[in-house]
Write a protein that binds this DNA or RNA. Structure first.
Lengths: 346, 346
DNA sequence: GTTAGCACTCTTAAAAGTTGAGTGCTAACA
DNA sequence: TGTTAGCACTCAACTTTTAAGAGTGCTAAC
């Protein structure tokens, strides 16, 4: 029924674990001694030969040990990792009791994650696509400029300058603010449709052009959010792994981290994967980002009610410590969930 | 009178220019053929021997060509670079006509600079140390949270959440806003002294604790500004230069770029150097950042009236194209000056 | 089915040899 | 006195050789 019997699984497991440790191809003798199978190296060799034929492991060259193939890693991730109960990590101390700027929390998280794992960490701010406006305010900053401040449910603060022909008087401003708040509060981006906009403009009367600008600002804020808010940390960690640190590959990878836009496709892929509760693992070519074909990427989404969600990701060599990484991600995911939940309850 | 006669200067110049091109030690024969001095390699050798004794050039090992020493580069930068008139670069197109968020402008600038030079670029936002408050507003975001929005003269927007025990009514909020604006507008950080604070609190009456929080927020905003607002681009460019791209050095440098805090000392050094109009060049050990002892750093400050200023920097190998870099910086400096000036005039 | 043994392969590291750019020095020249 | 040609010498970098070691596949015996 199964492609791999118990013994083959044990051997594959042993090979991969060993390779994760050392980064060196692992030979039959090593397994024979290391594992609790009590088999001679010759027997292991036979099994390895089978495993290679089945595509789970491969030889970098004749008469070298074996290394896991992408398929091998995949099997490992799917079947061989024990789902061990995770303890609370020291990350907890980064949790902020009082409401702080979300951006800082995320940057801290990324830092902790990178330090914990020795790989590269990325975190995106919760996507605002279906996020709700909590508070909105226009202020006259100087004669020709209005400042629009937008606060979302998740306590993200956005602001945008709006140029105007001339200053508005206080009363008008007050009215506009009341109007905007009463009309838009509690609405998410996709709830602000044409009908709502038309009605709003109608009510604004001669100031409908300002309303227009505010809506633009709103759209811009949401959009910017989705495109750019990616926090990374530990990008230089990849230099620690010889298989990634040659000039060519390292440069490509680091550029991808610097130009955060590229990371967005990773996020989109993760978000749209349906697998929203668990953890996503992309091994080698499975990754949506071409530059990362020599890496593995592990992602998780964290969620806040109402479909608002963000992504956490770890990028490292294929031989990353999947168990530890997945563990870390799970923990962080839970914590982020609860942080944002708390803020929301307040 | 001069330590170096005309011929030695020419030879030194030729050596450095050649080395900048190739990155390889340059030998006597090369100079003999390449320069317009019409001297045999033997003569050049004699001169080189002198130059070495004087400390301007050095040999990586016996029987290799010569490379410039830090002192050599220094002489080159100070004396040998022609101060050519710079044309308008394509950077102009990044100039934003309408008032946009400063952060974006700076990030764009950094990108352009890095692309232009093939080195790493950094730009700091104008320091707020002596920056003035232009506008300040408190808003009740929800029952327990106030949002303080601060806009400075340079159109930097800062915001900070303030937790309160209970919601304030509209009228109180209005009064507080008026009080804060009338008291603080036009003041710079160092003008908000104890006397001003005491008076302000007095006027705030029972809400003096909120005023306290606002002042904290203000201090925090200014502080954060100074510590973190550094935009970098092209960090991976250093991998293009073999002398910097070995794992060890590259990793140190890239970490410095990632942890932007380290770059702050560079800024402080530059700002406090007095040399406010021109361009500062740190060669090798001259750099205030230890990690950069194998690099050269070129910085410029741009200014906005009232002592508000920021820093632009280029980090690259010692054999960077100083002429081009200094040119780029000068151009950008002028343009930044004018952009901010324009915003201010508006 | 498992294991021991052996011949064979292939990488890696070290050693030895080769090359060539570049120097320093000396002696001759203008 | 400054310049140049010539030559012996040095040293990094490259190539080749050699040796060692890890690991395999296969066969034959248990």
């Amino acid at each position: 029924m199964q492609e791999l019997d118990e013994r083959k699984r044990k051997i594959l497991n042993a090979i991969i674990r060993n390779y994760l440790d050392t980064g060196e191809p692992v030979g039959s003798r090593t397994i024979s001694k290391y594992s609790d199978l009590n088999l001679s190296s010759a027997t292991i060799r036979n099994e390895m030969s089978d495993l290679e034929e089945l595509g789970y492991i491969l030889q970098p060259h004749t008469s070298a040990g074996r290394i896991p193939s992408d398929k091998g890693y995949r099997f490992y991730v799917d079947n061989l990792i024990a789902d061990k109960d995770r303890e609370v990590t020291q990350m907890k101390e980064f949790m902020i009791e009082h409401t702080e700027r979300v951006e800082h929390v995320l940057q801290q998280m990324a830092r902790a994650l990178a330090a914990n794992t020795n790989y590269t960490a990325m975190i995106t701010a919760p996507s605002c696509q279906r996020n709700k406006v909590k508070f909105l305010q226009l202020s006259q900053v100087d004669d020709e400029q209005l400042l629009a401040v937008i606060v979302t449910e998740g306590n993200m603060v956005k602001n945008k300058m709006i140029s105007t022909r001339e200053a508005l008087d206080n009363e008008t401003l007050l009215k506009l603010n009341i109007l905007l708040n009463s009309s838009l509060n509690g609405l998410s981006a996709d709830q602000i449709n044409l009908a709502a906009i038309t009605k709003l403009k109608e009510q604004a009367g001669i100031h409908s052009n300002i309303v227009s600008d505010v809506l633009d600002a709103l759209a811009w804020a949401f959009e910017e959010d989705e495109e750019l808010q990616v926090y990374t940390s530990g990008t230089t960690n990849i230099l620690k792994y010889p298989e990634l640190s040659d000039s060519q590959k390292a440069s490509e990878l680091l550029s991808a981290f610097e130009e955060k836009k590229q990371l967005v496709s990773l996020v989109n892929e993760t978000l749209s994967s349906g697998e929203q509760t668990g953890i996503q693992v992309y091994i080698g070519d499975e990754s949506p980002i071409q530059n990362m074909k020599d890496c593995s990427v592990v992602t998780a989404t964290y969620q806040i009610g109402e479909g608002m969600q963000g992504t956490i990701g770890i990028i490292g060599p294929k031989r990353m410590d999947y168990e530890n990484v997945m563990d870390n991600l799970k923990t962080l995911k839970v914590q982020l969930d609860s942080v944002f939940q708390k803020n929301k309850d307040k």
